[in-house]
């Protein structure tokens, strides 16, 4: 490591190796390396690592692509979705949809957390997505404040995903009274005005796969991860909803477990 008073930083050395150093710093770094052989040796080692990685793997990109990667075939033959462990969430969702429906009929006596939370979330969804002037309490333009406030009230480090890639902008969020304590509720809007919401509530239920519920012109996907129940609600287009939920799940999942004791 480089000491703090050095005129060249550790990051600059990496940027130098990776061709990301600004032109006006290149000479300074090279001159400094000339008088610091131990760092020049590190830089040489990093280059040798990169060479070894390329030597090992570059040839794979020159192999003819296997027939299974024919895009026409994939586009036509990928239903139901092929599920390796990575896509298991989606597979679980497709199966879970059926289970969810069966559970729905069978559990009238004792509503499960799935029943309770999806009912709450869909209720809030119905009430607030039609709001034109006051759909949220805190606007999406104040995202850091929104995250901080809702996290504090739920005593859980919430992740409010960025769904731009799924074509949705964050409208904002609000706090809701939930069946077992406060709940958080965030709204997103798509290009044609369609709205999706994410409902968050603390729960002691164990982790679950995604489950699906539809009704009343809306649909919801529910799952539990690290002590938090999530319900993504939106228009009843199963595939779009799955895409949105998957995008949210990927980002929430990306971060480390966040449950507070």
């Amino acid at each position: 490591m480089i000491d703090r008073d050095s005129p060249v930083t550790e990051h600059e050395l990496h940027a130098y190796v990776d061709g990301e150093i600004p032109a006006d710093r290149r000479n300074a770094v090279e001159a400094w390396l000339g008088s610091h052989p131990e760092h020049a040796a590190r830089v040489a080692h990093w280059r040798a690592q990169a060479d070894a990685i390329r030597a090992r793997y570059d040839a794979i990109a020159s192999e003819p692509a296997p027939a299974r990667f024919d895009l026409d075939k994939i586009a036509h033959a990928s239903r139901p979705w092929r599920a390796v462990a990575a896509a298991a969430v989606i597979a679980a969702f497709l199966v879970g949809g059926v289970v969810g429906w069966m559970a729905h009929g069978a559990s009238a006596a004792a509503p499960s957390r799935f029943d309770v939370f999806t009912a709450e979330a869909l209720g809030a969804h119905k009430v607030y997505v039609v709001e034109v002037r006051h759909p949220v309490e805190v606007s999406g333009s104040e995202r850091p404040h929104l995250v901080q406030w809702l996290s504090k009230r739920l005593d859980y480090e919430l992740r409010i995903p960025d769904l731009e890639r799924a074509g949705l902008k964050l409208v904002g969020g609000r706090l809701l009274p939930g069946p077992f304590g406060p709940a958080a509720f965030c709204m997103y809007e798509g290009a044609s005005g369609e709205r999706f919401t994410i409902y968050y509530a603390r729960t002691d239920s164990p982790q679950t796969a995604m489950r699906y519920r539809a009704g009343d012109g809306f649909a919801a996907l529910y799952w539990v991860e690290n002590g938090l129940a999530y319900v993504v609600s939106g228009p009843p287009e199963r595939e779009r909803l799955a895409n949105v939920a998957q995008a949210a799940y990927d980002q929430i999942d990306k971060a480390a477990p966040a449950a507070k004791p």
Binding site: R68, F69, L71, I74, A75, V84, A87, R165
Partner: peptide, 17 residues
């Protein structure tokens, strides 16, 4: 290659996004 295939499946399904 399984990962690549899943990536392609996901990409083609998300083309409209």
């Amino acid at each position: 290659d399984d990962l690549v295939q899943d990536t392609l499946v996901r990409a083609l399904r998300s083309e409209h996004l």
